[in-house]
Amino acid sequence: MSGMVEPGWMLSTLVAALAALVAALGLGGGSILLLILTLFCGADQLWAQGLNLLLFVPTALIALGFHIKGGLVQPKTVLPALLPGMGAAALGFFLAAQLGSGLLSKLFAAMLLLLGLRELFAKPAPPSASPSGDPARKEEAGR
């Protein structure tokens, strides 16, 4: 954390709450915490990324408790993702270590730009039948 302006407890709580709220909605809120720490507090990219992962664990456990209770998560939809996911994570971590914080932050910025554009121009599901392949729309159209 050297070289970083450490946020106080109140700011840390607010930022973490906002990031966790967005993460619990499955919107990738981890980026918010990471961005605020790196852009405003001068945190090192790799440290901020590690912190993000660390905080995601309790956040995800609590959010999942609610989502499982609400019937939104089924084991058969989770299991096929786990092995490929864990293997890819190990690969990603290895690549991160090779790139280092400087290059990594630029690459991260490029990813954010692409994803931001996608989110900004996302279209809502229309109320009636749509030729789109979105299963949510098919579900609504098919009844």
Binding site: L25, V57, A60, I68, V78, A81, A89, A97
Partner: peptide, 29 residues
Amino acid sequence: TKAAHATSIAVILPISLISLGGYLMAGHV
């Protein structure tokens, strides 16, 4: 839509544990 958002959390949690293990062992955090 909402099942996808919720399921993504369920998928990413164990994945995050793997990544986190790496970051902790490497001393990044």
